Computed example of a mutant assay.
Amino acid sequence: MSRRPQLTGRAAVLAVVVCAIAMSLAYPVREFIAQRRQIAELQQQQAKELDALRKLRDRGRQLQDPDYTMRQARERLFYCEPNQKCFVVMDRGKAPAARKPGRAPKPKAPWYESLWKSVELADHGVSR
Score class of each variant (00 low, 15 high):
12 A>P: 00
13 V>E: 08
13 V>T: 11
14 L>V: 08
15 A>P: 00
16 V>R: 08
19 C>I: 14
20 A>C: 07
21 I>A: 14
22 A>F: 11
23 M>R: 13
23 M>E: 10
25 L>E: 12
26 A>D: 09
28 P>N: 01
29 V>A: 14
30 R>G: 10
30 R>T: 11
31 E>T: 11
32 F>K: 13
33 I>E: 10
37 R>E: 15
39 I>D: 07
40 A>H: 01
40 A>Y: 00
41 E>N: 05
41 E>K: 03
41 E>I: 06
42 L>E: 12
43 Q>G: 00
44 Q>N: 07
45 Q>R: 03
45 Q>Y: 00
45 Q>E: 06
46 Q>Y: 04
46 Q>C: 01
48 K>E: 06
48 K>G: 04
51 D>G: 04
52 A>F: 02
52 A>N: 03
52 A>M: 02
53 L>S: 03
53 L>A: 08
54 R>D: 04
55 K>M: 02
58 D>K: 03
59 R>A: 14
61 R>W: 05
62 Q>A: 11
62 Q>T: 06
62 Q>V: 03
62 Q>N: 07
63 L>K: 14
63 L>C: 07
65 D>M: 09
65 D>A: 08
65 D>T: 09
67 D>F: 07
69 T>S: 14
69 T>Y: 06
69 T>H: 09
69 T>Q: 15
70 M>Q: 12
70 M>I: 12
72 Q>M: 11
73 A>P: 00
74 R>M: 12
74 R>C: 04
76 R>T: 10
79 Y>Q: 07
80 C>R: 13
81 E>Y: 05
81 E>H: 08
82 P>A: 11
85 K>F: 11
85 K>E: 12
86 C>Y: 04
86 C>L: 04
90 M>K: 15
90 M>S: 14
90 M>C: 12
91 D>N: 15
93 G>F: 04
94 K>Q: 14
94 K>T: 11
94 K>N: 10
96 P>S: 08
97 A>V: 15
98 A>Q: 13
98 A>D: 11
98 A>T: 14
99 R>S: 14
99 R>P: 02
99 R>D: 10
100 K>W: 07
101 P>Y: 05
101 P>T: 07
102 G>C: 02
102 G>A: 03
102 G>H: 02
103 R>A: 12
104 A>L: 11
106 K>M: 09
107 P>D: 00
108 K>D: 05
108 K>L: 05
108 K>F: 01
109 A>L: 10
109 A>K: 10
110 P>H: 01
